[in-house]
Design a protein around this nucleic acid. Structure first.
Lengths: 200, 200
DNA sequence: ACCTGAACACCGTTCAAGT
DNA sequence: ACCTGAACACCGTTCAAGT
């Protein structure tokens, strides 16, 4: 896991791992039949790593907030592994405990199956995307010209050039998570109160 | 671009491209000094491909909706390329026209620079994440056991097993985009009307 | 100017063989 | 039972040489 997440995205190799362990390359194939199978094992490790926050206390939206935050944390800590899972051709069993949590949370909150599914896709995509974007050196920086303010075609970016990296920091993730969860709460509310406004 | 996006994520090679073009591998290095430089060129192509919807008509939120939708479309059509850009070490100049659009849209709508930056991170991460998730075979499917309903530990997923793939379809993307944009509109409103409620 | 084969330092994996 | 070197079919890229 350390080797995969440390180096450049594509740099991990069986030979490198074998060297690290002080064995011949082929020794690895006594424990794992494939590079892919090795990835499966490491993925299971990473997914089990965060607490599954078993709290039944708290409102549904607080529980979902927690679950999405955790998913984001895992993807953030293991960006290369995340990319590998995305590229997989078969579903990875380890993912579905977390998805079940979020989905059944939405169902008990009162969403229809269809709406709950949509929300599941939205929340997991957001967690995944923010983690990958935040882990990308390419996305966190501005290109030279804009950073120097030498490009008047980019007035908006010039204005915030000094703080640009903050757009992918934790505070921004929380901001978006709030937008989504509050939107979901409002959506739930609309079904009982079409005005969309708290009447107290 | 076709070769990169068609095959498996890591399968593109200079040798494969040379074969496709009917030349020797080394011929390519007369036109491009690196595999990385080739990726840069292809990325520029992909980013220029969608219309930059130059409409100044429409409200700020409709303009941003359009821009985010377009970004999502590009990432969705070029998943492997998207992954490559994420892994880059230097910022890719082609990205910043779109980001400028979204950011200055948010600024003229009335958001503070900090809030606009956060919203930029949220919206671009969402578009990116949804596209990558939707393009992933691994994420669109349920594992065998859950699909068959043979796993009572997953009641929520069992219930929706038949329509599971719909959680990453366009309708779900639009649902999440609505949540985000409506949330942003409400956020803007709160500064003038702390009750958070339309008073007409 | 445009193209290229040989060569180098890498991959993952098979196979047959060592202890 | 556990380990492994040689070999094969791949990579990206350098270098020197062809037309």
């Amino acid at each position: 896991m350390r080797l995969i997440d440390a180096g450049e995205p594509g740099s991990f190799s069986m030979r490198q791992l074998a060297d690290e362990l002080g064995v011949g390359v082929m020794t690895l194939y006594g424990y794992v039949s494939n590079k892919e199978e090795l990835y499966e094992g490491v993925t299971a490790l990473a997914l089990g790593e965060a607490s599954f926050a078993p709290i039944n206390s708290g409102s549904w939206d607080e529980q979902i907030r927690l679950a999405v935050r955790e998913l984001h944390g895992i993807c953030r800590r293991h960006p290369n592994l995340t990319t590998i899972v995305l590229a997989d051709t078969k579903p990875n069993p380890g993912l579905y405990l977390r998805r079940e949590r979020i989905l059944s949370g939405l169902r008990t909150a009162g969403f229809t199956p269809t709406k709950a599914l949509h929300a599941l896709g939205v929340l997991t995509s957001y967690a995944l995307g923010f983690a990958l974007a935040g882990g990308s050196q390419a996305l966190r920086q501005l290109p030279e010209g804009i950073r120097d303010g030498r490009r008047p075609e980019f007035p908006g970016l010039n204005e915030v050039a000094d703080h640009y990296a903050s757009h992918l920091e934790p505070a921004a993730f929380e901001f978006g998570l709030d937008l989504l969860i509050q939107g979901l709460r409002a959506d739930l509310h609309d079904r009982h109160d079409p005005s969309g406004c708290e009447t107290q």
